[in-house]
Structures are given as structure tokens and as C-alpha cells.
Design a protein around this nucleic acid. Structure first.
Lengths: 215, 215, 215, 215
DNA sequence: TATGAATGAGAATTCATTCAT
DNA sequence: GATGAATGAATTCTCATTCAT
């Protein structure tokens, strides 16, 4: 996964090998101990460089965190959120809602899992700091909401999805279901393992589409 | 709220006034800066005691965190989770599902909001440390799941809720919807304010009950 | 001298014993190695305290320097420059110019010698930094110039000192002669020892009063 | 002046262009921040060379300082102190003392101003380190004293200057007056500007020659 | 019991110096 | 010769913890 992550995260950033190692190790250590719990010494050792080298690339420890945040935002807003979801939506005319949702769920879960260490770091920072929250709101939440809104309008017209509830409320509910699934997988996979993701998704989507009320 | 929290949290713990102040300040500072980002000096100042006094009550800084975790678990598992939810369930025969859910949602949201600083601290620690996750799983998740399971069985028999999906999946979905609402209120209330919680809950419960699919 | 310095410098500042030791050692080490050449570790060892203790009293290393500067300025402007020189001037009616000058020279030389470590530190900082220069100019030079001006006016009326040259030019020339003497004593005492300060002063004052031209 | 300085300082030293740039930048940065406050990185950037290049020419950072000291001593003792002052003295038979002194003052002030950055660096180092003081004493002070001594003997015979005071005492007093003027110009030119150097020198020389006592 | 001055181990950061290219 | 990335020892500063009062 180390290898995969590197490719995935940084291949197009034009980072030097050392810089890539440092950033990669920082993500690893920060996600294990939190930003304040991690030490630059630890990161340096993990990256196989001298501690001083870190500060050639990043002015301060905080600077590494900022870089990670920026990278995550770029990843989510520019490349992935928009790119792959749009693709799915564009193909959606051919499929029914259930299939589109499943594809989106699959896509999101795989993506978030792949960047989970980064996402975890930023989630914690967002819980603690206003400015991080602000950055996430502006760069991710608003954009994702807009995309969903378009999607919702189209499906509403087609008659596939209810149009008597605001787009945002539906969006939030879907988001909640994806989030808790990722949370379960990442935090409690030993206790509450998700053995068959495919079946699991079917159940969740069924609830999302038809609710929990007996007909 | 400061006053309320103190009473609420600690009134029955038999803590001395000083100890109460320290714990209360620790929760405040930890929730603002995270455990590693907070200093005992800061906590002492906020609590109006000498730094040394903290270490009369808690052997180490970590000890304060443990106390907070234990306290949160007690609060959730023993006193509140079980207590008030059970009460709602016991009264549930008289009401329809929608009303029961709304009451639970109200109850949970109010409760979590009131203990949010504590919950935030522990959430972060749970993201970072196995043992905290373990404690939460054993003491909260399992117990809450069991309670919901009983509730589900009863409602399933009554014909109010689908019984063709596992209890846990439904529970998780409801949990997700509550959680994201609390999250929105606590983290993005300035950007995405929840003006009328009552109406908001109606919409969410509608989606939970009937799904997002157009009939 | 260590003892003497302490008393002299700090006795009325209400400093704790530790703080006094730290400030005293800082002056010693800074004057030996310069501000940037000195380390807080060295100061701590010399003061017999832990390195961390220094930072209880002074937020930063720079803060120690500022304290020394402030202390020197207070010493020179408030207590000593004004105090003792005024006294000499007030008694001056009874003596001739030569005796007054000699008394001032004695007084200044003894004073500057006693605070030379401090003065050296600040001299170097003044050579390097605008703001220090500014502080010295405003707090010492202007005040000393004014005092001398009064002195000059009086002596000019009496007919003891030339009044066809600006006060400042005379002041500067006297200052130069005092300064170079202190400089010689402090920097080159091994090579150019001043064996009999009394005779030395007589010669210098003679030159100041009558010039170097043969009559 | 930058250009001039370079030519002036180094033209006859047979330095390569790079070496000249490095030395020139080192003087600039050292004089702004002091030796310990300056970094080799800063010097390299200012000189437009790689940091490593500095260490091709100078084994250590300290080595640059030594080079500057040696250069300053050469400049003062060999080329200039002796050269131009001798010339003035040799022409002195034709002029009166006042004119000779004025010429010397002009010459010295211009010279020291032109090399002030270097002189400042070495002054600070002399304040801090025995060995630098030693070098200055041996190579500059003694030599200058001897030259002045010859001058004094000659003028004493002519009857222009008092011969009832030691040569050194007179020399020191003249030196003091030159030094304080340079100091004023370099350190406090914004606060105490010297608008008309010519008139200023006339006043100072008048005081040096005739003293401050009213006749 | 409570204090808060003092500690010192450990953290982030700096910087002269080296060395492979 | 020249480079500049990399080093790691040294430095400033932080902070949980102790202990005499």
C-alpha cells in the first residue's frame, strides 16, 4: 500500500524522492499519533532522512500539515470528487438510481479508504480548528453539494427521486450513510467486519431508497 | 452552560470543588486544542488552581484523559443511554414510530450537544488509539446495539418497521443520520445553520422511514 | 566584583535570587561572547540553574538582552547620569573648572568601569541594530547633552569656559576623551596600562582646557 | 560605493571574481548582523554563489573573518596609514599645524568611512576577543603611535605643539576626537547630522589646539 | 492540602560543513 | 571548479512532573 499510496498521491506533483518520502511518512505518523503527538524526529526516521532535511522542504512542522491539507483538498475537489462522480452521473441515464448510487458508493468508499490516513488527520484538525473547517467547507462541501444538486434535479425530473424534500437534506442523508460505513470499516473492522461489501451496499441503498418503514 | 455542565457531569461523582474545576477545565481545553495540544499549565490557569494541584488529583496528564473517558462511558452507558432511551421505548407502545424516533432524536441530540466537548475529545482519541476504540465499542456500541435490537424486534412484530433487514443495518443508518446532524450543528453552524430543528427532524425522519425514492 | 556588581545593579529591583543570578550570568557571558555567540545553556550553567529556569523568567533569549538594555538605560539616565553629575555641578560653584572636570571624569570612569560588561554588550548591539541606537539616543545622549548644556551656560557666564563654540561640540570633545580612556583601560590595560589614573586625568584635562598648541 | 569598495579593497589582492564577491558579501552581512548573527547561506545568496563554494575558498566561516581582519590590518598599516599620512607629514613643513591636522582629519575620516563596514566588524570582534585586540594593537596602534611620535618631535622642535606632555597623550586625544566624529556620522547621522564637515572640523581642531578654556 | 518555583528530558529548528555529481 | 542537497550536532524553547514550603 505504501507504494500504491505514493503513486496515487504524489505521482503528478513533481516532488523529489526525498520530499515524497517525508510527506508520505508525515501522513503515516500524523495519522497514527495526531499532529501534536507526532515528532519530526519520528517522521525523519520513518522517511530515512536526517531531521534537518525535513526543514529544507518544509519551513515548519505546521507547514507539513498545511501541505497535507492542501493536497487533500486538491485531491477531493479537483481531481476526484468532480472527475469520477461526474463520469458516473453522465453515464447515469442508462442506469436506474440504485445502480448509480451503488457505483457512487463504491467509488467514494474506495477513494476515501485509499486516502484515509490523510482524511483522518484533516478530520481531527477540522474538529479542532476553525480555519481548517473553513477550508473544507469552501473547497469540498460546497462543491460536492452543488454537484449533487444538479444530479438531484435531473433525477427529480425523471421521477426517480423525491422532489418534495430539499436536495441538501437528501445529500446529507446519503453522505451520512457512506461516512458511517467508512468509519465502521476503518475503526471497527476487527469487531464489526464488513465481509461482503457488495451485499452491505445493497442493504444500505435499499434503506436509503425505500426507508425503514414496512410497507 | 458552564454551570449546568458541571452539575450535570459531576454532581453525583462526589468530587471536591477543586477536582471538579480541574476536570471541567481539562474538558474545555482538551476539546479546544486536543489532548496533546493542551498544557497542564493552561488547564491549571483556567481552573484557578496551581499547576501542582492537578497532580494531587491525577497522577499524570494522561490520567485526566482516562478520567474523562471513563466519565463519558458512564454517562452514556449507565445513566443516560439506557435510562432515557428505555423510558422512551417503554412509552413507545402508545405512539407511532415517527413519534418515537423523533423523541429519540431530540433526546440524543440534546444529550450529545450537552456533552459535546467531552465527546469531541474522545472521538479524536478514538481515531488515534486502539484502546479507546475498544472501550467505546465494548461499553457503548454493543450496549446501544442490543437495546436497539430489542426495540427493533418489538416494532418488527407490530409491523411498524421492516424486518427483512438486520437490526444492525437499520440501527447504523439511524445512527448515521443523528450523527451527521450533530456534526453539522457543532462544526458548521455558522455556515449551515439549523434554524428549525423540529422541521429538520421531520424531514430526516421522513427520509429514514420512507426513503428517497419517489413513489 | 561579582558581589559588588550584583549589589550595585540589582539590589533595588526586587529580583529573586535566581533571577539575579541569571541576569548576572547573562551579562557576564554576553559580554564575553556577544549576544549571538552566547548560549542559554552556558548562561544556565554559570548561573547554577536549569536551562528551563531561564525561560521561566525571560520568555526568550532576546528578552534577556532587552532587560539588560532597559536596566542599563535606567541606570544611566535615571539614577546615575542625572544624580551624581547634578551633585557635582551643584557643588561646582565652589571649585574651579579643572576640579569639577576631574571629579566628573573620576565619577564617570568609575561608573562605566563598574558597568562595563553591560555597556559593552549594548555598545555592540547599538553598532548592529537601529532600535538599540534609537533607545540609547533618546534615553541617554539627549538627556546627558541637556545637562551639559546647563552646565556650559553657567560656566560660560562665569567666564570659565569658552562660549564661542556650541555646547554640543565641547560636550562631544570631553566625552571623546573620557571614552577613549575607558576604552584603553578596558581593552588594552595589559599593553597600555594606566598606572596612575590621577596623573593621567590631570594631563588629559590640561589638554582639554588649554589645547595642544604651544603658547 | 559597492563598486568602489570592491575595487578599493581587493583590486590588488589577485582574488578571483567569485572570491571577491564572497568576501565583499561577507563584509556586508557581518557588518549588518555581526559575525555570529550572520549565516553562510545569507552570504552565499548575497554573493550569488552556492553555499558550498564559500568553503572552497575559506575552510571555515571563521576563516572569512580572519581574512577580513588581515585585510583590514594590511589596509591600515601598510598601504594607507603609513602611505597617506606620511605624505601629509612630508608636506607639513609648508603648512601650519591647523592645516596639517585638518588634512589628516579629512583623510582619516574619509578612509574610515570608506572601510567602515569592515572596521565595525573588527571593532566588535576586538571587543570580544583577546587575539583580535592583540593583532590590532601590534599592527595598527603601535605603528600609528610611532608615526605620530616622529611627527610630534618635529612639530615640538618647531614650537608648534606643546612638548610638555607625552606624545602618546596628545595622540590619544586627537584620536578620540576623530573617532567620536566618525562614530557620530556612522551611528547617529539621522539624529545628529553633520551637515558641513569642513566647519565641524574647524571647530574641533580649534578645541584641540586651544582647549575649551576661555582666555 | 495546596502551592508554584524549579527541573530536565525532549521537541522544533538552525546552520556550518560535507560530498556526490 | 562549482554546486546545492543532505547532514546532524547544537541551539532555543516547551512542558509534564516534582518537591520544599
Amino acid at each position: 500500500m505504501e507504494k500504491f499510496m505514493k503513486e496515487f498521491y504524489f505521482s503528478e506533483l513533481g516532488l523529489s524522492e526525498k520530499e515524497e518520502k517525508i510527506l508520505s511518512s508525515a501522513i503515516k505518523i500524523f495519522s497514527q499519533k495526531g499532529f501534536d503527538g507526532a515528532t519530526t524526529n519520528e517522521i525523519a526516521k520513518d522517511a530515512g532522512v536526517a531531521e534537518g532535511t525535513i526543514f529544507k522542504y518544509y519551513k515548519t512542522k505546521k507547514g507539513i500539515l498545511t501541505e497535507i491539507l492542501v493536497h487533500l483538498i486538491n485531491l477531493m475537489s479537483e481531481k476526484v470528487v468532480l472527475g469520477s462522480i461526474k463520469k458516473i452521473f453522465n453515464d447515469s441515464s442508462k442506469k436506474n438510481v440504485r445502480e448509480v448510487l451503488k457505483e457512487i458508493f463504491y467509488d467514494r468508499i474506495n477513494f476515501i479508504n485509499s486516502i484515509f490516513p490523510m482524511a483522518k488527520i484533516i478530520l481531527i484538525e477540522a474538529l479542532l480548528h476553525d480555519d481548517v473547517r473553513e477550508a473544507i467547507y469552501k473547497n469540498i462541501i460546497i462543491k460536492a453539494g452543488e454537484i449533487f444538486n444538479n444530479f438531484h434535479i435531473r433525477l427529480g425530473k425523471e421521477g426517480s427521486i423525491r422532489d418534495d424534500v430539499e436536495s441538501f437534506v437528501i445529500f446529507r442523508s446519503i453522505l451520512a450513510n457512506i461516512a458511517i460505513l467508512i468509519f465502521q470499516k476503518q475503526m471497527f473492522n476487527d469487531k464489526l467486519p464488513i465481509k461482503d461489501l457488495d451485499k452491505e451496499l445493497d442493504k444500505i441503498i435499499d434503506i436509503i431508497l425505500h426507508g425503514i418503514k414496512k410497507k
